[in-house]
Design a protein around this nucleic acid. Structure first.
Lengths: 117, 117
DNA sequence: TATTTATATAACCTATTCATTATATGTAAA
DNA sequence: TTTACATATAATGAATAGGTTATATAAATA
């Protein structure tokens, strides 16, 4: 069976600059499809499809206000993605790197004592 | 001109489960291509191409050890991705949400005082 | 009810992604 | 210098992504 990892869909959705820009816009409050179209030199159907991708990834949810459909950000998937990245923090945080260095030294000492025995 | 946002490439690279698994493996130390192949029911060329994608995204760097080519994680791009996601922390952190609520209240009060004037 | 406005869907095209198998290259060792 | 091993590249194919235009639907308004 094919494991369906939600991170696939989340990262895939985040990999498009238009979709990230849409999320950035929605961070300032909900917006209609037309409002979300304005900043882009792109057709309305294209934006609608981006919104569908974001919705299917769970990154946004949508409601209705008369004719308009308002989108808003949902935090869950980003939290997941963030949590996954956090697992690698040692690779960019100097403090974690110092800790890693320390553990390396301790292992080396351990090995040396082993040989001397 | 087409803005080349590195986040595109980073998130795109992270969107594949095989590549994420490779990174997870490399988090425990460098490894050769063959070692990275083992866990997967997939041809060696397929893994080599995944490694190329990761390298082009800057997520790994590679060196040589005799016939073998060792890969190791580079933290930069993940730090970037992480930083971008952090911008949305308000959408999943309860504490940020409380702060947002507070700011909303203050705005509402402000508006009311405006009317009363 | 007819028209306008907001959004969604269909049909289509092109480029890219992810896998495959077959083959080439680089390095070490016999 | 042949052989073996580790890895890279080429050629191919199916599936998906991201855009287009044309058209359909849903809700508000005249």
């Amino acid at each position: 069976m094919k494991s369906i990892d939600h991170l696939d869909i989340t990262f895939q959705a985040l990999a498009d600059p238009t979709r990230r820009a849409i999320l950035a816009r929605l961070a300032q409050g909900e917006a209609s499809v037309n409002e979300l179209c304005e900043p882009f030199a792109m057709s309305q159907p294209a934006i609608s499809r981006h919104l569908k991708v974001l919705e299917q990834a769970g990154l946004i949810s949508r409601g209705r206000d008369a004719q308009r459909r308002l989108s808003r950000i949902e935090g869950g998937p980003m939290a997941e993605a963030n949590a996954w990245l956090e697992g690698f923090r040692r690779f960019w945080e100097p403090s974690f790197q110092r800790l890693d260095g320390l553990l390396e030294e301790m292992k080396a000492d351990e090995a040396k004592r082993g040989k001397e025995k």
